[in-house]
Write a protein that binds this DNA or RNA. Sequence first.
DNA 1: GTGGTCTAGACCACA
DNA 2: GTGGTCTAGACCACA
Lengths: 126, 126, 126, 126
Amino acid sequence: MFELDYKNRGPIYEQVCDKIKELIAMGELKTGEQLPAVRGLAKEIGINHNTIQKAFGILEREGVIYTVIGKGSFVSEHSANAKIFKENALSEIKQTIEKNIIYKVTHDDIIKLSNSIFNKGVCEND
Amino acid sequence: MFELDYKNRGPIYEQVCDKIKELIAMGELKTGEQLPAVRGLAKEIGINHNTIQKAFGILEREGVIYTVIGKGSFVSEHSANAKIFKENALSEIKQTIEKNIIYKVTHDDIIKLSNSIFNKGVCEND
Amino acid sequence: MFELDYKNRGPIYEQVCDKIKELIAMGELKTGEQLPAVRGLAKEIGINHNTIQKAFGILEREGVIYTVIGKGSFVSEHSANAKIFKENALSEIKQTIEKNIIYKVTHDDIIKLSNSIFNKGVCEND
Amino acid sequence: MFELDYKNRGPIYEQVCDKIKELIAMGELKTGEQLPAVRGLAKEIGINHNTIQKAFGILEREGVIYTVIGKGSFVSEHSANAKIFKENALSEIKQTIEKNIIYKVTHDDIIKLSNSIFNKGVCEND
DNA sequence: GTGGTCTAGACCACA
DNA sequence: GTGGTCTAGACCACA
């Protein structure tokens, strides 16, 4: 399903949350689709089932997935997910920009940065 | 010198780093100026001196300040600092945007966001 | 007969109990009327027959239905059911209110809440 | 600090959450006051520290408490808490009443119930 | 000392 | 088989 990156980041359960969200955002997990079993997934990626449990619990509280007792966990309505995801994304970007205004980051810097990220030619010269 | 906000934030040493960088960026700490003594500052803001020590160590590794043994810590050349600060800021913003492309954040979203942050009207000149 | 809502709910057998009670309360299942066969109902709503069995067992213990071995399950005397249902309902509401007194819920709050639920104007007659 | 009721209810961590909220609502834990240490409290009430950790984690996500890394957990602003608590309480009562309308619970039933709970005399006769 | 994360393994309810 | 809870115990970051 996915692999963990042990070098970089924070808690494993957070990484699991992020990966699941990515899979949903990319359409590889669709509305209503059943997620892999907690213990099965744990075995597959080589971590303890409690860690997966924690990740799924967070995703459930966030409304990204829902659980049917005794049956399994399922992906919530995709349009709702897409909305939550995008809102969180924009909010995170906003915070990051605002936090850095003090270091002389300008509107123009952001435009240029965004242009370079999204490969927009700046008319002729770039 | 500054106050800490204990709620919802990461480690205290990180906040201390940020505050000092802000003071430098805002010109309240100038090139070559001596930083307050570790123990004095610790007492003033009510935290353990080891925490300040840790923050100063990080700032030194980043080149933001330098320490003269037996004398104290001093603010590095301001233009160098300004450059480091801005590079870090842009790099952080870039990473944040790239991480969120998967959630359908577009170039237009970033422009709009930046407009709203920097209070640019979208009509007349742009 | 009825459909289940898998999201955000407790165990399926509990939902089955509730649905059958609702059907009786709404008069769609009448005194003495035979309930659908366990296996047939299970197939119809797409769940395991053990789950239906469990629900019927609970309803029987509550006196809501009765089973004649070899014939099937039947709805108990309606007036008795109505009494049981209402007693349980009031008892549940009572408990919920009492549990929340500690959070400054007042008699007035309850009146207002009830007014809003039952669409009573607060002006003219009351 | 408090004792658990092992007979009745659901998960222990939920009971811990409820107890802490009660203590805050009753003013026995005040704004900014430090909560007992996770491991200390666990030992005191005879459960595992992970269970307390889970409870505190939920309270933190709900905004009821906040954690300063390395220092401990503290009670959030009381007025905010009081508001959250009362909203949750009224919402829970509302849901309970609405769920039971089907069983012929009336506005009058609620009034009588509330009168009996809050010891309001109904004029002369009661 | 304080909280946070993780594992291993048990036991339970539900389908 | 599926998820949910809990314990015991380890290891880590932070103050």
